[in-house]
């Protein structure tokens, strides 16, 4: 096994933290967007119901 230099090691560490950040933020974003969508849908329905009454 050839030994890599310290800077190359740092690149891998940066890549890991970047990818984990993207993964976590992506999942969080997906969950939050879904949450907003359903809340908006429910609110719209409730508003319609109030008008119809």
């Amino acid at each position: 096994m050839e030994f890599l230099s310290l800077t190359e090691f740092t690149h891998y560490v940066t890549a890991v933290y970047t990818l984990v950040t993207i993964g976590v933020l992506g999942l969080t974003g997906y969950i939050l967007i879904n949450s907003q969508k359903q809340r908006a849908r429910l609110r719209r329905l409730q508003a319609n119901k109030a008008i119809n009454k």
């Binding site: 969950i31 429910l42 329905l45």
Partner: peptide, 17 residues
């Protein structure tokens, strides 16, 4: 917790629809 709340909202909206 956020996902479960979303799921409850989805089911409520569906029931209303």
């Amino acid at each position: 917790f956020i996902s479960i709340r979303t799921e409850i909202n989805r089911r409520r909206a569906r029931a209303m629809e």
